[in-house]
């Protein structure tokens, strides 16, 4: 049994790499350049749930094909980009979109770097302002020590 699962895994891994080797090229017909652009953008921001980390445009997997066809259908119906994304999210969950939604956890994607920048500049400002005084002190301390040493030497 273990052997069977192993062979299955091997098969699947070979299979999945085969699917990404050749990227998918479809020939959909559109009513306008704008519509083609909407479709094109959508296939780049929708993720294929079955595959490795690939959008549905790059993947040749069966499911990616289905999703492309569905996207094409919806775009042809005149759906906007957001509507199509919502349609997919309703079925496959947030995993399917490369643009993450805002949740209590994902908010840190934006907050984290922002807080770091604010904090960084605060420290920078304080250091540059503070340094002068502190360093002077140190310097005078060192100067005293230096004097002592010099004195000792002259003695």
């Amino acid at each position: 049994m273990r052997n069977l699962t192993l062979t299955l895994c091997l098969f699947l891994s070979v299979f999945s790499s085969a699917t990404f080797a050749a990227s998918a090229i479809d020939t959909f017909e559109f009513e306008s350049i704008e519509q083609e652009q909407v479709f094109h953008d959508l296939t780049k921001v929708l993720r294929c749930p079955k595959c490795q980390n690939q959008n549905i445009s790059d993947s040749n997997a069966e499911l990616a094909k289905d999703l492309r066809n569905k996207t094409y259908e919806l775009v042809k119906e005149g759906k906007t980009q957001d509507e199509v994304v919502d349609y997919m999210v309703a079925r496959f969950g947030n995993f399917v979109r490369y643009d993450p939604p805002i949740t209590p956890a994902t908010i840190f994607l934006w907050l984290g770097p922002l807080l770091f920048i604010l904090f960084g500049f605060l420290v920078l400002y304080k250091q540059a302002k503070n340094k002068n005084r502190k360093e002077d002190e140190l310097d005078s301390n060192e100067a005293i020590r230096l004097k002592k040493i010099l004195k000792q030497e002259t003695k």
Partner: peptide, 12 residues
Amino acid sequence: DGMLGMDLGVYG
């Protein structure tokens, strides 16, 4: 055609 499959979000 995988119609219900699509609506159920079946991915494999």
